[in-house]
Design a protein around this nucleic acid. Structure first.
Lengths: 350, 350
DNA sequence: ATCTTTGCCCAAAGCGCTTTGGCTTTCCAG
DNA sequence: CTGGAAAGCCAAAGCGCTTTGGGCAAAGAT
């Protein structure tokens, strides 16, 4: 059933039927009701490809997710971000195009995005430092919003980000205040901008508390459970092991906790752990009563997804509303995984 | 830059340019080279909407993911499944449309899918028992593949599934063979078909080993860490607590382990845990050396995604190749979380 | 009574591509 | 030298929708 058939059936022109369905005023209420009823009865719904071609709007947003060369693929953080973005798209009648691409094809894909006209805008995930995609997208003229920021990109662009630097500065500061001097950082991949900012915040806090940074207590890798476990295990094997861990994700944090407890140490008594909590729907950092488990810096990535999507939709509707930015602050939540270090005398002994 | 402009530039007709670009033989090699070079030079890429309209193929696959009424949204299992499917789509030049919809809108969305022509086929996620979506899709004429099966759906349809029943029968049987009699099941939502099959397999194994099922040792909920923790905690509070847990996901399994160890019990010594391992990229069930941690029934959901996608693409290319099915067997992997029960005398005492 | 507005509808053009059905030109067999 | 085949190209139709630019009554203004 297409528009013409429906029009023939109603003995109306396609023009009138189209206007009736799309709420234009040049059609009598009587006719509109008749058209809507017939469309409903015959399960008519417009061919989106034809509509797109005619209107010039695809009514779809592209999410391009880089697939790293390792086989760790789709980050749970993406999943929740996309769930948040979908809330906004659903309301606005937009679809979501998901493309997972190997790093190698990035340039081609981003260059083509604009001309293929399959989407009206793009969300850029996981920017690295001086990410080339931003320049490409700008050149393409396609509206876009970056989830995160790309240090080194001079010209303005729209983004939604968490204040990763401040979050990790506060978290590390909190551990220092508790008396910890051997604080480990189990970070995400530092080729990505957010992880670099987190490390900077971490370093700033240590410096402010006169704690010397120790490269042996800093690791950087994809935020999987296994990587968290592995990093923590190696650090606990050090001659002077950490008394506290600052971990970039609840998932790697779970691995850290496993390494700690495997040693017979008790989290929150012998060793402290602070995580960054993205408030993932399948990995909530709270007990059934709603109390936080891990001490954490919390910022919902799902919310970030929704905000980024809303921002993009606004940029599509009114491109002149110019580059928009939104910096979210993470809240520090004290849970059951932190306390003063077990042997505080160590502080003096160093 | 569109086709006509490119044609004008080359002083050729749009017809010839189109044929040159799409590899048709009615154009001289000389001209083809000239056209390809010009397309490259001017960053021409065809408008996909126009192409779709002309060819009648959308070159896109829809994934519709139900959003439950609770706020647990995007399952990591979906994420890995989609990552697998993307491998197949990428190779074949297909795009992926993702729609997250509340349960309430399901009927409308599925009915419209066919007529809106935005996708050439659909993957159905998380079927429930007698899932209405299957009948709707069949009526729409759109090719589709179900990830999982829907008991109660009489007519044939295409699906890719793991043999959940046998997997859980084997896992529970393994625990029985070790001497366990108090075996808990921490299952996924039993409104979903896979969870029901898992419970059936579990029940069959218990019956075969003359173990009476205890409703107090069976729970069913979304497979989050918190839910696993909560369920295990409640069961450990029982007068006659379980000596082993069979858990539907590595994520809830992590929660179960947390509950166990919080009690001061040692996993793999005092309490056994077997999980079903979907081989999630961000939650691998192996230590750095590649050894399994949890004893598990393993079946890669990413592989399932790839197989389902390939199946769907085949159905689109040759609809007459009829309903296809693929049943994957999970392998039982013995890790470090299982052993004979601590107090085997209990077996006799019951 | 005539002129203008308003309400309601329609024909036709166009979005950018593919594809059908020719139309030339060249080449070679007869 | 001619007829037919083959190679290489093109004009035009069409995919299903939206949108422009009227047209034609009926209603209101003069």
């Amino acid at each position: 059933m297409n528009l013409k058939q429906l029009a023939d059936l109603l003995e109306l022109s396609p023009t009138t039927v189209s206007r009736a369905l799309n709420g234009y005023p040049e059609v009598s209420e009587d006719t509109r009701r008749r058209v809507l009823a017939a469309a409903e009865a015959h399960h008519y719904s417009p061919n989106l490809r034809a509509r797109s071609l005619a209107t010039g709007r695809a009514m779809a947003i592209g999410h391009v997710i880089p697939v790293s060369t390792s086989h760790e693929i789709m980050n749970p953080v993406f999943a929740d971000f996309i769930a948040g973005a979908s809330e906004a798209y659903g309301k606005a009648g937009y679809d979501l195009h998901l493309t997972l691409i190997p790093d190698a094809d990035q340039a081609r894909i981003y260059r083509e995005l604009g001309s293929r006209r399959a989407v009206d805008g793009v969300i850029v995930h996981s920017p690295g430092r001086g990410d080339a995609r931003i320049a490409m997208l700008r050149a393409s003229g396609l509206p876009f919003v970056v989830h995160g920021r790309a240090t080194g990109e001079a010209a303005p662009y729209s983004w939604v980000d968490v204040n990763n630097r401040r979050a990790f500065e506060r978290a590390a500061g909190h551990l220092c205040d508790l008396g910890h001097r051997r604080i480990a950082l189990v970070n995400g991949l530092e080729t990505l901008d957010f992880a670099r900012r987190r490390r900077e915040g971490f370093a700033v806090a240590l410096a402010a508390h006169d704690v010397a940074p120790d490269p042996a207590l800093m690791s950087s890798d994809e935020m999987t459970e296994t990587n968290g476990y592995r990093a923590a295990r190696a650090m606990l094997d050090e001659a002077d092991p950490p008394t506290a861990f600052l971990v970039s994700s609840i998932i790697s944090g779970t691995g850290v906790r496993r390494a700690v407890e495997e040693r017979g140490l008790v989290t929150g008594r012998d060793v402290s752990i602070v995580i960054h909590d993205d408030d993932l729907s399948y990995f909530r950092n709270s007990d059934p009563a709603g109390e936080a488990l891990f001490t954490a810096t919390r910022s919902s990535v799902r919310l970030a997804g929704r905000l980024a999507a809303e921002m993009l939709l606004q940029l599509i509707a009114r491109p002149e509303s110019g580059p928009l930015t939104r910096l979210l602050e993470a809240e520090l939540i004290v849970g059951r995984t932190t306390c003063a270090p077990r042997n505080p005398q160590k502080i003096g002994s160093r």
